[in-house]
Amino acid sequence: MARPFAPWRGFAAMPQQVRRLAVVIVLLVAAYFTARHFLVPRTFGEKGHYRAAAVDSIAVLPIHYAGREACAMCHPAEVAKKAGSFHRGVSCEACHGPEAAHTTDPIGHKPTAPRDRAFCVRCHAYDPARPTGFPQIDPVLHNPVRNCFTCHNPHDPTPPRPPETCAACHGEIARTKAVSPHAQLACTECHTADPRHAQAPRQFLPSKPASREFCGRCHASDAPPPAHLPDARPPKVDLATHGPRYVCWQCHYPHYPEAR
């Protein structure tokens, strides 16, 4: 009768096949654990099923954004100004770029300052998806060509109030006109301006006189005295003979004292 399959009788009593295979399997298992001993990283499993040292190597990666506190150390004026403005929540590096290098080498690494309209428009262009109340403009219509910072200081961007007088923007003209013979005349005497010119000056340009006859309303030899300035005695010329091939302001610049 065949020897029954009975591994519990001891190793030697087992069939030859089992003994040989057992040796092979034991060798393989031993090889596995030996390999494990050498190949598993040292810190693996210290804190969980991962290489604990990996956390340390991630923790020391280089920092590029220094953080707004770092800027305040050297630029208190700008930071203080910004703190009272609508941009108080905006980090310096949101506009000036990642500048950790500047904190360690302030001379060698200078931050950039965006001057382009395209930069401001990234936040402030109108998009229906932007929250209601967030200041947005139509970049095509809102003072095109001009750089934003000509009117809005990025550190305190509150929009300038629309100018109430022409002199607010056109001061140079106002100062010369004040000492010119035309000092008594309001700007609107010769220019008509759409009220929207105050908000979007280039979009709504004021008119300018276009003909000799416009000046002739006061200065022609047969012109009546201006109704609202009855005492004025404007110099009179004969439009037909006085420089007939020119328009008046080619020789007489109306804002200037030497206009005459």
Partner: peptide, 29 residues
């Protein structure tokens, strides 16, 4: 220069400054 960054970090609310420890250091971050 070197003082600035660490000073800034001390100004931060929870600022456990670990400096820049070597990656393979046993005293990692």
């Amino acid at each position: 220069a070197p003082l600035v960054l660490s000073a800034a970090q001390q100004a931060a609310p929870a600022a456990p400054d670990t400096a820049h420890a070597a990656p393979d250091s046993a005293q990692g971050a």
